[in-house]
């Protein structure tokens, strides 16, 4: 039974690992920290897995655990020298972009997002993941109205960075 549960869990996580990687790329600056956070999220997901009822999708459930870990539970294990070669997705400019102004805008926006506080980052992340406000509110434990107000402020901020 336990073996079966392990297999089920690892398969689900393997299929949905992108979500965790995306959270890690937003909340960490180097490859070691990325892996550290990924591991901690995995442990937390596994610990909570027996309570996962299956009445929501595995991926929906993952957002909550992954963000809770990044915002609340994760502790950097030790200070590491900054690795410059880190090619986090958020730094990498995708090859599909050819327009140099667009590329510049994206770069500016990503660097602005990286400077946001942990909670604001979570809001932006859920927004980019096409979550609706009721889901965002539920994940963070704030009201829907407040989620909307806050997100609008962040959006305005991001727009003024590009069009000052």
């Amino acid at each position: 039974m336990n073996k079966e549960l392990e297999h089920q869990f690892v398969t689900e996580l393997e299929n949905n690992q992108n979500i965790v990687h995306k959270v890690c790329s937003l909340y960490t600056d180097d490859r070691d920290s990325h892996n550290d956070l990924f591991q901690e999220i995995t442990i937390q997901l596994w610990k909570a897995y027996p309570k996962f009822r299956g009445d929501s999708k595995f991926s929906t459930w993952m957002y909550r655990v992954a963000l809770n870990t990044a915002i609340t539970l994760y502790r950097k294990s030790k200070r590491r020298p900054q690795t410059r070669d880190y090619d986090s997705v958020i730094y990498k400019i995708s090859t599909e972009q050819y327009d140099p102004t667009e590329e510049q805008h994206l770069k500016l926006m990503y660097s602005a997002i990286r400077q946001l506080g942990d909670i604001d980052k979570a809001l932006v992340f859920l927004y980019l993941e096409e979550k609706n406000y009721s889901e965002i509110a539920e994940t963070l434990g704030i009201t829907e109205v407040n989620a909307r107000v806050k997100m609008n402020r962040i959006k305005t901020k991001l727009r003024t960075i590009i069009n000052p």
């Binding site: 393997e14 990687h21 901690e40 995995t42």
Partner: peptide, 24 residues
Amino acid sequence: REEHLPRLTYEEIYKMIWKKSSSL
């Protein structure tokens, strides 16, 4: 950007679930 995300194998993830948490 999803295409550029790292990808872990089944074995790598399996090993992780037995590691000790260092959570707050």
